[in-house]
């Protein structure tokens, strides 16, 4: 058993009268890749935002490296700096070049010197194979390139874990591949990843576990070969049949 990086217990989230998350227990160890699938509206993105500490839970606890995040007066910004987040939309800072985007976190949050932050940023851009595009602005990059800059931006912070919220959902199929390839590469390098995606090929190849979410709960989980081939719950069976059948 490796070290548990991020975990939660009885996690619930309510917006107005609507309970979007209805009680989730979850943990991920260093070096693992876990993939969340499930129909839209099942609470996947909300779950990820909560685990990224971007929104507080209504009930329940979140633990980062064993420490209760909201219960022990920790500096949330310092924790967020250790949890990378890649959004569905690339969400790049539009006034900065690719390099500027990746450099900003190390410089402003980690207080690195300019040359050091720049070296860090260039390394991250090399990892996503974009070093030649370092001096281009977001508007001059394709959707897939923008998303890879987003990944580099998270990587440059040396996070303990990176959360991906459907990073290819707004991309064409070919652009999807280039992003997925980068993510597979990261998983093989041992980066801890929690990924919401419907790219089952990715899940099959690199996931240690797949979690199936429906109606605010994780209703089934297991290794990819098991969950994808023999889903136990009718909801998961139905969902996978439609997803694979493309209906």
């Amino acid at each position: 058993m490796g070290e548990v990086i991020l975990a939660c217990e009885g996690l619930k989230k309510r917006y107005g009268d609507l309970w979007v998350l209805k009680g989730i227990d979850f943990e991920i160890e260093r070096g693992q890749t876990k993939v969340i699938i499930g129909p839209s509206g099942s609470g996947k993105s909300t779950f990820l935002r909560l685990m990224g500490l971007l929104e507080p839970p209504t009930e329940g606890k979140i633990y980062f490296e064993g420490k209760d995040v909201y219960g022990s007066g920790l500096d949330l910004n310092m924790l967020r700096a250790k949890i990378g987040f890649v959004f569905q939309e690339p969400s790049l800072f539009r006034h900065l070049t690719a390099l500027g985007n990746v450099k900003l976190g190390p410089k402003v949050v980690l207080k690195m010197k300019d040359e050091e932050a720049e070296r860090k940023a260039m390394d991250a851009l090399k990892t996503v194979k974009l070093e030649e595009w370092a001096h281009h602005y977001p508007a001059q990059l394709s959707g897939g390139q923008q998303q890879r800059v987003g990944i580099a931006r998270a990587l440059a912070m040396d996070p303990d874990i990176i959360l991906f919220d459907e990073p290819t959902a707004s991309l064409d199929i070919e652009l999807t591949w280039e992003v997925i390839d980068v993510m597979k590469d990261l998983a093989r390098r041992g980066v801890t990843m929690l990924v919401v995606t419907h790219e089952l090929g990715f899940a099959k190849e690199v996931a240690d576990e797949i979690l199936f979410m429906d109606d605010g709960r994780i209703i089934e989980s297991g290794p990819p070969e098991e969950l994808l081939k023999n889903p136990k719950t009718p909801r998961a069976r139905e969902f996978l049949r439609r997803l694979i059948g493309g209906v």
Partner: peptide, 9 residues
């Protein structure tokens, strides 16, 4: 949101 996720105040 992206700035927040980087830990920026």
């Amino acid at each position: 949101m992206a700035a927040k996720s980087l830990g920026m105040t």
